[in-house]
Design a protein around this nucleic acid. Structure first.
Lengths: 255, 255
DNA sequence: AGATAACTTCCATAATGTGGAATATCTGAA
DNA sequence: TTCAGATATTCCACATTATGGAAGTTATCT
């Protein structure tokens, strides 16, 4: 019809993943009628698609007829996580060894950042950002590092869709301030999150150059440990790590 | 063609998930030609399917043209994992109320156990197994409960791939001892981990029957509290919980 | 460099997926 | 309990959609 069709895209495959994303957005389970209104697809079509997924275990139908994400997705997700992690884990571990703070790798995922892997520091006081967690872009180090690689108008579109909540008094609350901050990040080569997501937590982040999906890595910890002298040591190590990961992601890496 | 067609199944959807599973089995990345021989599908068909996935971020194409699992799968997997947890949380909470010790649910995930959800006891001294954590199978209660449901040769293959580290002096260190232990577990109906992962921690575990992915639940705590009289109370409650979760997880077709 | 293997694009074909209409099932009200 | 309204599922005629052989590209090996 009037809808734009992606070239070479297989319709039913696109639809089935749209449905899975909708269910995920809704917290893991949905009624068929809800999916119909959310997706705009006719009931029988959705039913047939979900039936196919259910037969393979990617979706489960509950007793109340609702459809829920199925256990087989866990394995695929874990595999994808390991895949990204395999390319980055060595470098993240090295960062943790060298700096003693928690290291993360995150990618952009529909207007937010998705934490793909984490190597935790051995300190008892540390962040709990689990792999698979999503966060806003404007108030995280990795998010700002990624945004700094995009064009300003793209950034505006992203925050318009995702919103700009201000979890702390230091969070950036409007687009123009964010754009200004991104200019600083581009000059400087790395992003800083100084208590923008949580007071007392500071984070240094850097984009992974030429990644297929915009990607960034970070080290973060309490301000008491993550100070100016930490930054001096961290920035060159972050750069090394980002470049090394870039090489891994783009070239072959047996793991 | 003369092939059997699944009733109501959407071909391209089935194929696309078969491909994702193949890539996962192969460790996260594969060449198109490898997929062609493994799946029996013609090259152009695979290419079109993967291109659709790649456009949405469920697969990434590396510089050497190999296809790897993409970052968007991470989020779906995480959602599915939480979903499993949601179905079990009520039962786990009841176990904690009844027994006063921490309850876990875990699934098998590429030769290891993946802790999907945990309800912690109120005791200050307790286990710290976080949801999302993976552990070996041979030295955990949930792992052994799951292995006891599999055929011996499958068990041998799993431990051959995953290895059998012995974190404590009580850990099982060779396959034959493990197989013997699994026979005991099958007879008895539940698994015990008595300090095999950490000295002083005891755990009772039971498989969730007929789960789509092999699954088990457990209660664990310090030996001082988790003794014989605890076992007497725990085992019937574990069985009830496992059966209840089984009913939740499997689609209740009879109403 | 040339040869070989692997990947990608093209396009005629019909098999495949589609969705409106009909039917079955569930949920809540009286 | 029975009934009405909402929701899910099955059916099936139709053409849109996916298919895969053949041809064209691009990488890798010798």
């Amino acid at each position: 019809m009037a809808e734009r069709t992606a070239p070479g895209g297989v319709q039913s495959v696109e639809r089935v993943f749209d449905l899975l994303e909708l269910i995920t957005d809704a917290g893991g389970q949905m009624m068929l009628s809800e999916l119909a209104t959310a997706s705009g697809l006719p009931g029988p079509t959705i039913h047939r698609l979900l039936r196919t997924l259910a037969a393979k275990g990617y979706v489960r139908q509950l007793a109340n007829r609702r459809y829920a994400l199925g256990p087989r997705l866990v394995r695929l997700g874990e595999g994808a996580s390991q895949q990204m992690g395999a390319m980055a884990r060595g470098e993240l571990t090295r960062l943790v060894d060298q700096l003693g703070e928690t290291a993360n790798i995150a990618v952009i995922d529909s207007d937010m950042v998705l934490y793909v892997a984490q190597v935790a520091s051995r300190h008892s006081m540390r962040m709990f950002t689990e792999a698979g967690r999503r966060a806003h872009m404007h108030d995280t180090g990795v998010g700002k590092a990624i945004l700094a690689q995009l064009r300003d108008e793209t950034v505006r579109a992203i925050v318009a869709r995702a919103g700009m909540p201000t979890p702390t008094s230091r969070s950036i609350g409007n687009v123009d301030d964010l754009i200004a901050e991104l200019h600083v990040i581009r000059e400087r080569g790395y992003a800083v999150d100084d208590g923008e997501q949580e007071i007392g937590v500071r984070c240094f982040a850097m984009a992974v150059p030429n990644a297929p999906t915009p990607t960034a890595i970070s080290v973060s910890g309490p301000v008491s440990r993550v100070d100016d002298s930490f930054a001096e040591r961290a920035v060159p190590l972050l750069r090394e790590a980002a470049e090394s990961i870039s090489r891994n992601v783009n070239l072959v890496s047996g793991g």
